[in-house]
Design a protein around this nucleic acid. Structure first.
Lengths: 199, 199
DNA sequence: ACCTGAACACCGTTCAAGT
DNA sequence: ACCTGAACACCGTTCAAGT
């Protein structure tokens, strides 16, 4: 039977998960599927589109949870909204960490088309619930996304280099999470004060 | 006369400035220098090292200004330290914007070796002056660097796509600076409150 | 509709051999 | 010391031609 788009995507995801972004070439993908490289372009526009699909898959585990219009939670209060943003941010980090080079793939997709991923919109809604009006909610969401993608990309690059034997293992392991949480608090505390001083 | 390392670096910088990172290949660089590709490897270890040198050059315009131990300024007070950090951050952004794909080049270098650029250390010193103790100053500096590199990378990617005709020009131009400043204030306000509430 | 074969226009890096 | 020639092992994408 013929190759399907889903097979292409699934195999691409497996290469990414097991070997990383550097090994995810169209030619390697074709080889793993037992097909000529050109065949892929029947199922997929180009590599960028493929990475876009993978980005959505990587982020999928963070797509559940509260949206902006979620009644029955304390997200109606501003401090509740901040708490929700903290939770969402950690969930996104976990989703990115779940796939090798996940943050880099999502960052690539996000750079070429910031609107394509739904994260931004959801976080912006969260910041509106936290009391940020006008452009400010969107700006805050962008800042948070840059922070998350930058942090996790560095974290994954680091562990990739260690696994490759290029870097030695760090003395103090896993303060990465503490560092992430601290930077997150900085951003959220800043948003909270910006809300409380609306002059 | 023989090729010098400085010529290699200078020509690489010109390609980057005039044509962008995508055009800066070792082969293109060799062609512009009138030399075979292999010749470059006598002067430079590999492409990564070359990008590291370019990163330092890109950041150079932001290397002046106040350091941590700068007497005779009001940086001795915590709010003065915050003001200094705000100024430094804007200066770094301007330096990155000064070279095509500057933020991406620096981000690449930073990802593979976060210690190599001196920015991080300087910003960490700034956060210490602002009252953050222990790991916190370093964490705050990392957060700020991720934010700056992420913001400016997106800004430059965007203008690159527009120039290439892939994207239409934005309706509201240059709210990029407002967006940057807002995110910056978030981070700095967060740092200020974290300082004032040392419980 | 779906794929092959083959090409086009590239990459970064190495290294014996030349001068 | 410094460079050439040539190779190695790759890339992403296109497209006529086949089935």
């Amino acid at each position: 039977m013929p190759l399907t788009r889903d097979q292409v995507i699934e195999t691409a995801f497996e290469i990414l998960r097991d070997y990383g972004l550097a090994d995810l070439s169209m030619r390697r993908l074709a080889r793993d599927l037992g097909v000529q490289p050109g065949a892929l372009y029947w199922h997929v526009k180009n590599k960028q589109e493929l990475l876009g699909v993978l980005s959505v898959m990587i982020m999928a585990p963070s797509d559940s949870g509260p949206t902006g219009s979620d009644p029955g939670s304390d997200a109606l209060t501003e401090s509740g909204a901040i708490a929700a943003l903290r939770l969402q941010s950690r969930t996104i980090r976990r989703a990115l960490l779940g796939v090798r080079d996940g943050a880099e793939v999502v960052a690539l997709t996000h750079a070429l088309d910031p609107e394509s991923l739904s994260v931004l919109r959801r976080l912006a809604v969260g910041f509106e619930a936290a009391g940020l009006r006008g452009h400010k909610a969107g700006w805050a969401a962008k800042a948070l996304v840059h922070y998350i993608l930058g942090s996790v990309t560095e974290e994954q690059t680091r562990s990739g280099l260690i696994q490759a034997g290029v870097l030695a293992a760090p003395a103090e392991m896993s303060d990465a999470e503490d560092a992430f949480d601290f930077g997150l608090e900085l951003l959220l505390a800043g948003a909270a004060t910006t809300t409380n001083a609306p002059r």
